[in-house]
């Protein structure tokens, strides 16, 4: 099934608030061997935890027509306004910025605005998802 062609430009509801704790950051850093001491900012790719929630919202929406098992992460970029830190309360709001078809695959580009408890932008996470339907 092809992806809903009107998807481009659509903004999805924000994720639930995510509490950034020392424990979560330390576990993420440890898994990748990244040096981390309490009080340090989170590793630069840590906001994927929140962005991934937003992507799950897109991929599990039955109206969108994405088959979860046919999605490959093609590209990812983080633009930080400031480092994420323990104590932050973050949420992500995902917008589909583009949709095109190449060789039977849907190339879905997304941008998730990750904001803190004051509503200030902390990080923009841009992801490209490659969806090969019906393989």
């Amino acid at each position: 099934m092809p992806v809903d062609p009107s998807l481009s430009g659509r903004t999805f509801p924000p994720t639930q608030d995510f509490e950034v704790t020392e424990e979560r950051v330390a576990a993420f850093a440890a898994a990748t061997g990244t040096p981390y001491a309490p009080g340090d900012p989170a590793p630069a790719t840590f906001p994927i935890v929140v962005a991934f929630e937003a992507m799950q919202g897109l991929m599990s929406d039955p109206d969108v027509g994405i088959e979860l098992h046919h999605v490959v992460h093609g590209q990812q970029k983080f633009v930080h306004e400031r480092p994420t830190r323990p104590g932050d309360r973050l949420r992500a709001e995902l917008t589909v910025t583009g949709l095109r078809q190449i060789g039977g695959a849907d190339i879905i580009t997304t941008s998730s605005a990750i904001t803190d408890a004051d509503g200030a932008l902390v990080c923009t996470a841009e992801a490209t998802l490659v969806h090969k339907a019906g393989e």
Partner: peptide, 23 residues
């Protein structure tokens, strides 16, 4: 994440990465 770890290690302090991305 390993690429970001590398930058942190070379720079010698965390939190200096303003942008990072790849295909």
């Amino acid at each position: 994440a390993l690429a970001a770890r590398y930058v942190d290690e070379e720079v010698g302090e965390p939190g200096r990465i303003k942008q990072i991305g790849a295909k």
